[in-house]
Design a binder for these strands. Structure first.
Lengths: 134, 134
DNA sequence: ACGAATGCAACAGTTATTGTTACGTGTGAT
DNA sequence: ATCACACGTAACAATAACTGTTGCATTCGT
């Protein structure tokens, strides 16, 4: 796979699950469907579990299933669970000397955070059920 | 620097230029302000020049300056000039066997493109002049 | 007890990006 | 004409992030 594969994998898996919410799936099954590795699946889905979107059960009849109603899970939930931050940069380590430069740096950071928030807002308008049914 | 440095560098430089559009700047000056290397600056700004946002002049009194009015340059112009594509993945190389899987793949791709377009639309609402003056 | 599944650590391979050096090219000043 | 200056570009090393993979511990149902 390539760039943005985490988001793509998560979206694909959740949408698939939304079609039959009661069924429990193993990471091996999901990996098969997604063309990747079970460990990769567990890594990505682990974040979604930590965010309360999925449940995972160990043991013989274990596997993954949705923790909430498909209608209540938005793309924003997924995006935030994965901690992507596509727009806003993590940290500014430059620290310019000139105060004008410093102010401009802060403005650029501020703008990027606004854009990021707009993106999250937009993602919040679509649920994984809609992805499947569109 | 780190992730998204191209967009950050471009935004910062253009906003800075918007404050004094007549002044011509060298890549060395810009690199100094941005805490990076002149070659990196030329690489990033070269894309903006190819997109018609900047002009560059060689020679003794050469340098970089805005090719258009600051009010007419939006963040979408910058984003598209850099060919970022943060959301939509470039290509799906998986090609699932099951037709249901295939349809789901296309839907996920379609959704991601819609989100990408929403992002561009949002970016188009802000000009580099606004970044500076906000 | 055994098999099946997740959880997690460790590692190699790949890719993208950045920083850097070097050199060619064009342009204005002298 | 010569020189200094600045861009244009190629080549390379260093770094970072991510993926794929293997291995092993743990947990749970049969």
């Amino acid at each position: 796979m390539k760039r943005n594969s985490r988001l793509s994998l998560a979206l694909h898996t959740l949408s698939h699950m939304a079609g039959d919410p009661n069924r429990k799936r193993t990471s091996a099954d999901i990996a098969e469907h997604s063309g990747t590795n079970p460990v990769v699946v567990r890594r990505v889905l682990g974040r979604l579990r930590d965010a309360g979107l999925l449940t995972s059960e160990k043991g013989h009849a274990g596997g993954w299933s949705l923790a909430r109603e498909p209608d209540s899970i938005t793309l924003a939930d997924v995006y935030l669970a994965l901690d992507e931050s596509l727009i806003a940069s993590g940290s500014e380590d430059h620290a310019p000397k000139c105060s004008v430069e410093h102010a401009l740096h802060r403005r650029v950071s501020s703008i990027m955070k606004e854009i990021e928030q707009s993106l999250v807002d937009r993602l919040g308008e679509t649920t994984i059920s809609e992805v499947r049914g569109k």
